[in-house]
């Protein structure tokens, strides 16, 4: 499908049109940039990178899988239909990575429904929005969006990724634009890390880890969860909940009887990195990490796993 051209003068009108078709979500600059539900389209920014990723719209932090009353179960599925504007390629790729886990042998129906419902309008990074970005090293694919906005001064060129996207822009003039691949200053040089599992650098570099879990909370591909029942005060009913969990806590691997399989801080940290760079790739042939840099940006002590890996020698 051909790309289209939108004059920036028409940008707000276009956003208004989106808003009329569902719940519009887009980056808003407040004290920091956040993805928010939009009431006023003039609040939307195309600068910067929301610190918190999009995953909450596909599998919320606390989510009812089903409610129960006595022995009757009712499955809970997403109600809202989101139209998301301003997702960067790292965020869009993060969803493609999560698809492999959540739409695998046994699909997660909530996630599946949200993926089918939600419309994704990307925003191409002419310049990486953050100095921690290193997506150039992570093999992002130019796909996964319904539309992709590319800033070209006076205009946006809009790449079309789906029929649903095309329907939104088919009235606009066509364009032949092809965006440049994203270049990032920061790069992950060592991407083959199997040999780095036993390496003194883990202990040394991870000494300043506070095990607070901020990295996993902010990661666009971290969706590990806990499952528990939340009884209603009336006791004969309640809900089974999934809640985001984090491998950075000791309890994550604790089994009945009390044994913890990843006790040391550096083991927990290393597991996160190995999952993102090695284990997932072993299974699916691509990195789980999409190079968004949030885990570094949001780390209280600014532990930089990219630099740690780059510093390791075979």
């Amino acid at each position: 499908m051909r790309a289209r051209l939108l004059s920036k003068h028409e940008f707000h009108r276009f956003l208004e049109k989106l808003k009329s078709q569902g719940t519009l979500v887009a980056p808003v600059k407040e004290d920091i940039v956040r993805f928010k539900e939009i009431t006023d389209v003039s609040a939307i920014t195309t600068e910067g990178h929301p610190l918190f990723p999009l995953k909450k719209y596909f599998s919320p932090q606390k989510r009812k899988i089903f409610t129960y009353e006595n022995n009757n179960i009712e499955e809970v599925l997403p109600e809202k239909q989101y139209i998301m504007f301003g997702a960067r390629l790292c965020d869009i790729n993060a969803l493609l990575r999560l698809d492999k886990l959540f739409l695998g042998d046994i699909s997660d129906r909530y996630y599946q429904r949200a993926r089918a419902n939600n419309l994704i309008i990307g925003l191409h990074c002419e310049i990486p929005p953050n100095e921690m970005c290193f997506c150039e090293s992570m093999g992002l694919s130019d796909s996964g969006y319904d539309l992709l906005f590319c800033d070209a001064g006076e205009n946006f060129h809009i790449k079309v990724g789906s029929e649903r996207g095309n329907a939104l822009v088919q009235d606009l003039p066509e364009s032949d634009f092809q965006p440049e691949p994203i270049k990032t200053e920061k790069k992950l040089h060592n991407t083959e890390i199997a040999a780095f599992f036993e390496n003194d650098a883990w202990k040394k570099e991870v000494e300043k880890c506070l095990s607070c879990g901020a990295c996993t909370t902010l990661c666009p591909t971290c969706l590990c969860f806990d499952v528990y029942d939340d009884p209603d005060v009336e006791m004969n009913k309640g809900a089974r909940i999934t809640e985001w969990d984090s491998c950075q806590y000791e309890d994550f691997t604790k089994v009945a009887g009390g044994h913890v399989f990843r006790q040391a801080r550096e083991q927990r940290f290393r597991h996160r990195i190995f999952h993102k760079i090695q284990y997932y790739k072993d299974q699916f042939g691509e990195f789980m990490c999409t190079g968004c840099g949030r885990c570094i940006e949001g780390c209280p002590t600014k532990i930089d796993f990219v630099e740690i890996l780059n510093g390791m020698k075979q």
Partner: peptide
């Protein structure tokens, strides 16, 4: 092997033994 297993569907992440999902 015994591990913490919340989902049994290779999603919740608890049972990983290095890169292997014990539940699956």
């Amino acid at each position: 092997f015994e591990r913490q297993m919340k989902c049994g569907e290779k999603k919740c992440g608890h049972c990983m033994m290095n890169g292997v999902y014990v539940c699956k």
